[in-house]
Design a protein around this nucleic acid. Structure first.
Length: 327
DNA sequence: CATCAGGGCCCTG
DNA sequence: CAGGGCCCTGAT
């Protein structure tokens, strides 16, 4: 079973996102499955983070306004953190959370779009947000595959309980990810005993690739999208659906949209063509449509409309949608 | 009770 | 490039 750690040192720093910045729509994605490494309520997000092998408890708090945004970031740790470490961490958080993404061109270009215009208006300053390292995201992607949401939640929880570290800070108890080498030492059978099924093999092999250094997040950030895609597809258990998520969320390619899974096909068809779920528009046609209408911003545009839908759902069930998402 | 498909991917033919 | 198998779970 996992260990737990009380974090008693606290530092507070200020982050300055590029305006416009919408705190809640960035810090909470209602379509993401709940995970024991974070918690959100309006104006605050708690998030654990393993950075340079140091487990951290983060708390982001909303300050300022959409047009003059600030974030107060409190950082809990077991030991005192150096200035250099904090600077480094700040850069990483700016990168992962897309805090410096310039949305102005996107906003101007689509403010009058019949469908996207109103959504941009509602969620001005929202950006895609990823809190994970590449390795952590790969694990999440694997856990999502061929499973219902509930099952993904259970698998992730079992992994945290067995390999993660429970962090106690700010009155919260949240799990922090493990170092890859921890799972590299585990056997496939140990993983299978957590009821993750055949995914055990994928997790072992992806972890091994990371530990060996065969795939390096920081090197990959410098490469082209197609080089990144090729490297990711080379990982056992990582296919086009997972790679699509990673290229957008982890590597921030706002135009990465060239694979649509069957369940999303039905939802996109309804959203953009108002078709019935049993007669969805072909994925080829959907992809052409997105490309033509949203150009290099196509995944960002779809993200806006997708999140808008799930915020609506959070505030009251949407009947047609409930049938299409397996919980 | 049995059967089945699911927020994919690998492997085979 | 189509289709079967994979772990387990909740739905039927």
């Amino acid at each position: 079973m996992s260990k737990s750690l009380f974090l008693e040192k606290k530092r507070v720093i200020e982050l300055v996102p590029r305006a416009p910045f919408n705190f809640d729509a960035t810090m909470h994605k209602p379509d993401h499955f709940p995970s024991a490494d974070n918690e959100w309520k309006p104006g605050i997000r708690w998030q654990t983070m393993l950075w340079q092998k140091v487990p951290l408890g983060l708390k982001f708090e909303k300050r300022g306004t959409i047009d003059e945004p600030r974030i107060s970031l409190s950082i809990w740790s077991r030991d005192e953190l150096s200035r250099g470490f904090l600077d480094n961490l700040t850069d990483e958080i700016n990168y992962r959370y897309n805090l410096q993404l310039d949305l102005n061109k996107f906003n101007r270009r689509f403010k009058d779009d019949p469908q996207l215009g109103a959504v941009i208006n509602r969620w001005k300053g929202m950006r895609p947000m990823n809190y994970s390292s590449l390795y952590e995201y790969l694990i999440i992607a694997i856990v999502l595959q061929n499973a219902t949401v509930r099952r993904s939640v259970n698998m992730m929880q079992a992994l945290f309980e067995n390999y993660g570290t429970l962090l106690l800070y700010n009155g919260k108890e949240l799990y922090c990810f493990w170092e890859p080498k921890v799972i590299n030492r585990a056997t496939e059978q140990e993983l299978r005993d957590l009821k993750i099924g055949y995914r055990a093999k994928s997790i072992k092999r992806v972890t091994e690739a990371i530990v060996r250094g065969g795939i390096n997040e920081f090197e990959l950030r410098k490469k082209s999208k197609e080089e990144q895609r090729k490297a990711l597809l080379g990982l056992y258990g990582i296919g086009p659906a997972s790679v699509g998520y990673i290229l957008f969320d982890v590597f921030h390619h706002m135009d990465e949209l060239n694979y649509i899974s069957p369940w999303k096909q039905k939802i996109y068809s309804k959203l953009f063509f108002d078709t019935e779920p049993d007669e969805p528009v072909s994925t080829d046609r959907l992809l052409e449509f997105f490309k033509e209408r949203f150009g290099k911003y196509r995944m960002l545009a779809v993200h806006y409309i997708w999140e808008d839908l799930f915020w609506k759902r959070k505030n009251g069930a949407i009947e047609w949608l409930e049938k299409l998402i397996r919980l």
